[in-house]
Structure formats: C-alpha cells, structure tokens
Design a protein around this nucleic acid. Structure first.
Lengths: 215, 215
DNA sequence: TGTACATCAGTGAACGCGCGTTCACTGATGTAC
DNA sequence: TGTACATCAGTGAACGCGCGTTCACTGATGTAC
C-alpha cells in the first residue's frame, strides 16, 4: 500500500499506517536529496510521512539509526550494482573495470541521497557492524575486479599489487563522483565532458600503463 | 591579542573582545573538526568565544556566512600551498605534480576542518563570488601543473589534453583525501599504506602511461 | 594636552518556535479455542 | 464461525530545552578642535 508523502494523518483511512518504516526511509531520502544528510530533523521526516512525531520511535531508536539504515541499504544495493556491472570479469578485465566505474557513477547519479548517506555523513562505520560489513562488501567487488585485471597482466616487470590497483580505481571513481556528480546542482562543479567520459579516459590511461587494454 | 576559547565573558578584562571575528572563525574550526561542518550552532560558536549569543551578528550575517568565510580562506591557503608545492614545475613536471598531490593530501590532513568546510558543506559555490573565485584559483594550480606535464610530453600519438589530465589528477587526489584522510578517525577507512604512498603510486602509474616519468 | 562627541562592538533580556522524547492511551489486527 | 484476548502500531498532550533573532542599552575607543 502506498501513501503520498504529504498525506495528512486525518486522510489516512486506517489508524495504522501499514508501512511506516519504509515511508520514513523514503521521506528521509527525499529530504536528504534536497538538503543533504544533515539537513532534516526526526520530527520533519515524521511529518513528511503524515504521522505524529512520536511514531518514528516505534521503528528507529533515533535519527542516526534511520540514516544508518539508509546507508546500510545503500551499500547493499551499491554492492549489487557493482557486482552486476563487473559480470565476473566478462567480456574482458579492462571492459569489466570500466563497467564497474560507470556503475559507481551511475549509482551516485541515480541515488544521490543514498550516496550522501553513505559517504557524506561523517559518522563512524565501526559503530554499526551491519553497516561496516555492507560497505566492505561493496569495496570487495572493486577488489575482485582489480584482481582480475592484475592476473591478466602480461607486461614485463613486477605485477602490480591488486589491492593497490583497486584502491587507485576506487579513489578515481570516488573523486569524480564527489566532485562532479554530487547531489543538487549546488555542489556540482562545471565539467567540459561527462563524468562518465572523464572516468573512462582516466581508467584507460591508468590501465594502459599496467599493460592492460581492451582487446 | 589572544583569548582562549572557553574564557568566560566575565574574565575578559575588556568590554570589547578585540578580535572577535578571528576568534569566531577559530572556534568554528575547532567545532567543525570535532563534529563536521553541520555539527554546531551559531550560538555555540559564540559561547566558545566567551561572548553573548548576539555578538556574532556584528561580524557575520548568519551561520552560513561564517562557514562560507572559512571555506573562502581555506581555498586561498589551499591554492597557496599547492602553488608553492608546484614550484613552477621544478625540478621536473612529474616530480612537481607529485608534490602538488602531496600538498593536496597534506592540506586535508593538517586542516581537516577547513577541508570539510570547503568540500563537505553542500552549499553552492555560485552563491558567493569570492568563494567561487578562490576555489577556481586552487584548481588553476592543478591545471597549470598538468599543462606543464602535457607540454613536456615526448611520447608518440596524440598529446593528452591538459585539462583532462588535470581533472584526472584532481579526482584521484580528492578521492584519496575524502576516503582516507578525512576528519576524525570516524570517517576514515583503513588502508594498508599511507595515503601519500597510495597517491604517489597512482600518479606514477597514470603519468607513465602518458610517456612521462621522473628523470 | 584636554575635552566633547561620534562611532563601534559588545550586553542581556526577551520573544516565539520547533525539536526530541516520554507517557498513558486507543484503535486495529491477529490468533487460540 | 464466533468470541475473547494479546499484541502491535499508532495518537496527542506534555515537558524542558536551546536556538535564532531583535532590541534598546552601554562601555570602550578614536578623533576633531
């Protein structure tokens, strides 16, 4: 069952909301998208769901718990999307990495609120075990992608350490997403090409130097 | 003249603070370092400076104006430090770029509060002309460094567009700073090497592919 | 050098407001028999 | 199938609190003569 966000309590035909937990999460996402992960109050998100200010306490200990849950769900979907983009290294390691990079930016673009909850609320990952695990899982995909690339390395000289490669790629994707894809036009900086093109060219230059290129 | 932050108004020997504007900025920086750029109130920063809640209004229109001023000053110092690290491309283009990268991370590490005010308050650069100019000035250094590198390019094939190179380098440095150098251990992720080493190796791999390496 | 006066940079009291949180409550739902 | 009861998921009133902001004020400083 669906309720529009500004449906007042009086118009609800049922005393029970039916799906408040989800409605709170959706409302919070909308507010985060508008004003950033610190830009709303617990009371506000209750109001947005058409519910009294006390109701959210049935579902979340406090505002932080709500945002943490959003971040956790975000990391899960993020990991899924990266995983799918990677496609176990098909058709080849370089293309797969580029696809992962595109998926990274795609997520930041399609889910700016989630992305902000994941990366722009400076609160400790360690505090929430589920959250930490979900975030490590997302990075795991990047790591596997880099390992795939490193193992198909045919150049001369030392084979690049896969963890390092994964971190370089992560940093570049994350940097581009943070600087140029961010939530709200406000934060965004101007760019003479699409973020996707920028990342693709960056990855190409980087990977080429490791003796890797798409066949 | 210096006043410690928690000096109560009564202990000040003078009715006038003497240096309130600076004291407010310093207090805000301390609070940002502790709790992030959204983690304090205007009243709180007044209290930290040992002054009534009304006093800050003599110096800043509101909280946003204070944070914007911090960001502006931050961009100025940031640009200075990058400029100095670049040293007009000496001793060679690659080393100069690596130095700029180190300076980027160094700033994020030494001035986490400034860095947060510059990059983690999602409010619009366009709103404040001074702020916009200062930030463009900082990026200008990166751009000149990349131009230096591109012009010393001796490889075969097309010469890489300097703006693109500058953006790649910016993204990698910014990504590493955001993910691994951030304010408070809270936000930071674990890393098997120093951020500086990570950035240096990343730049080396990247630049090598452009036919550039330190002599 | 002294004095009068303008300006500056603070005070502190006051206001309305919305937030977070608790509480006893109540309507709706599910289930045992 | 009907009924009694337990549980669940909301309400709405209440509280204390700190914030943002305004205001008339006042102590300190600078300056003209």
């Amino acid at each position: 069952m669906q309720f529009s966000s500004d449906e007042p309590a009086s118009r609800r035909e049922s005393y029970h909301h039916g799906n408040l937990r989800e409605a709170l999460i959706e409302g919070a996402l909308r507010l985060i998208a508008e004003r950033g992960p610190a830009g709303f109050t617990f009371a506000e998100v209750a109001r947005a769901a058409g519910v009294s200010a006390a109701a959210p306490y049935r579902h979340f200990r406090d505002r932080n718990a709500l945002v943490a849950e959003i971040a956790r769900q975000g990391y899960e979907r993020f990991a899924d999307e990266l995983e799918r983009a990677w496609a176990e290294g098909r058709p080849d390691a370089v293309t797969a990495i580029e696809n992962v990079g595109k998926a990274y930016l795609g997520f930041a673009r399609r889910e700016p609120a989630c992305y902000a909850a994941m990366f722009e609320t400076g609160f400790p990952l360690e505090a929430d075990a589920m959250l930490l695990r979900a975030s490590e899982c997302a990075f795991g995909v990047l790591r596997r992608a880099a390992e795939g690339a490193a193992s198909s390395y045919r150049g001369q000289g030392v084979r690049p350490p896969p963890l390092m490669v994964a971190l370089h790629i992560w940093a570049m994707a994350h940097g581009i997403a943070s600087l140029f894809v961010g939530r709200a036009d406000a934060t965004r900086r101007k760019l003479p090409m699409s973020p996707e093109d920028l990342l693709e060219s960056g990855l190409l230059v980087y990977l080429q130097s490791l003796g890797l290129q798409a066949p």
